[in-house]
């Protein structure tokens, strides 16, 4: 069920576009932000609001990698950049350090559902590499030591 708050936020942006179809990406972002992922039921409800077919939203969800359709992630989604500028200054080592610390492999979620670890492509922070994004925050200039402090520092 979409929350009333999400519905209100979605309706508020109708005026930004010339048609409802253009609202779809932002609408899905608004809903995902609430619990970190989207369910098929969410897509059906959003589709009804926007006069679209659920499959059209499914297409968007499958194409853009940040949407987690039917893919629950932990409370903290740890996404480490694996691209060249980060790799040149130790991204692989950072990933190994995180895997060891959280006792999970890339693509997995910890048993307590707190952390999910993913590899991602360039996040535009190459001058402060290696770096990671946790939920919507960037953490840059990572070292073996500070990455553990950052992860343990979450409530």
């Amino acid at each position: 069920m979409l929350s009333d708050c999400a519905k209100e936020k979605i309706k508020k942006i109708y005026g930004n576009y010339s048609d409802l179809h253009s609202v779809s990406m932002t609408a899905m972002q608004i809903v995902q932000r609430e619990i970190g992922h989207l369910t098929k039921e969410d897509l059906i409800e959003i589709a009804e609001m926007l006069d679209m077919k659920p499959i059209e939203l499914d297409e968007i969800g499958g194409f853009y990698t940040m949407y987690n359709v039917e893919r629950p992630v932990g409370k903290y989604h740890v996404q480490v950049c694996e691209n060249l500028p980060c790799a040149l200054v130790g991204a692989e080592h950072i990933i190994t350090v995180i895997e060891r610390h959280l006792k999970i492999k890339v693509g997995e979620t910890t048993a307590d559902k707190r952390y999910t670890l993913s590899r991602v492509q360039c996040l535009g922070s190459c001058g402060t590499a290696p770096m990671m994004q946790v939920n919507e925050e960037f953490y840059e200039d990572l070292t073996e030591r500070n990455v553990i402090e950052i992860l343990d520092g979450f409530e």
């Binding site: 179809h21 990406m25 972002q29």
Partner: peptide
């Protein structure tokens, strides 16, 4: 003026893919 967020697709930097994305399609 409005802000429209992409959601993880490098190809949307290609200008026509970017337009598709604003219109609510795959980029």
């Amino acid at each position: 003026m409005y802000v429209h967020r992409g959601y993880g697709a490098y190809i949307c930097g290609e200008e026509t893919a970017l337009l598709e994305s604003i219109e609510g399609y795959r980029g």
